[in-house]
Design a protein around this nucleic acid. Sequence first.
DNA 1: TCGCACACGTTATAGCATAACGCAATTGAT
DNA 2: ATCAATTGCGTTATGCTATAACGTGTGCGA
Lengths: 131, 131
Amino acid sequence: MGTPQLTKNQSLVMGALAHSDGPLSAYTILDKLRDQGFRAPLQVYRALDKLLEYGLVHRLESLNAFVACTCPHEHEHDHGVTAFTICEGCGQVTEFHDEAIEQRLSALVRAQSFKTEKTTIEIRGHCKSCA
Amino acid sequence: MGTPQLTKNQSLVMGALAHSDGPLSAYTILDKLRDQGFRAPLQVYRALDKLLEYGLVHRLESLNAFVACTCPHEHEHDHGVTAFTICEGCGQVTEFHDEAIEQRLSALVRAQSFKTEKTTIEIRGHCKSCA
DNA sequence: TCGCACACGTTATAGCATAACGCAATTGAT
DNA sequence: ATCAATTGCGTTATGCTATAACGTGTGCGA
Ligand SMILES: [Zn+2]
Ligand SMILES: [Zn+2]
Ligand SMILES: [Zn+2]
Ligand SMILES: [Zn+2]
């Protein structure tokens, strides 16, 4: 189960995110795609649902917004826990992964007998340029 | 600068959260407090802002909801990074803190020359009872 | 050919959060 | 005491985020 061929709407939404320098809200994506025929939020949300499922896009919970995944490797397998730094100044988002954090979190939730389905790690602050 | 005396509205909102077994949305709090004279969302949001500032309440970004802090120690000092497990089955939320994760995250963002202001860690899944 | 899965389009609605106005009480100089 | 600044409060209106519910069309295997 790799990534299937994207539909037209999915490609358009993916393109909007990929060409943006920062995260986009669903409604911002909608506005960017009006010229391509988008008329309603559901067209965006349905595409986003699939892109999230395929691992091509991440949702930033603390922003109610979405970013294209910047993982270098192919998306054939789940890429573990994803973390983000989010600059309040310039809006820059940096995705990163860390095995140590993943394992430590895993141990902590195992101690609670908790079964993880999705992990959110988001760090708000200021990047080097915006300090 | 400890925690100031709470105002009436702040006390009511704090009480609603403290007596709930799970997280509450702002609008759910509003409904619970209608009999106490609450009429509009802003009454809730303004109280929540202060309670968040005092560290008595946490916001769950992935749920757009709020929980009372369950830290044992007094809230005279910032209690570092807070993490949560959130059960999709029963809604139970468990707050925890871990020095190792805090330090590892700190090292990772320092490597980016990023200055952290707020860290969100939320783990969605199923608790022992709901597995 | 039938049935099913899936993407799509549209309208309406639900849920979350803040802007902007004005008033009242408190505090802390002067 | 008086003035100014701060803080909390109440209200109305608005904006942003997300989903429900309905129907259409297309492709594909039984
Ligand atoms: Zn990624
Ligand atoms: Zn920046
Ligand atoms: Zn806490
Ligand atoms: Zn549970």
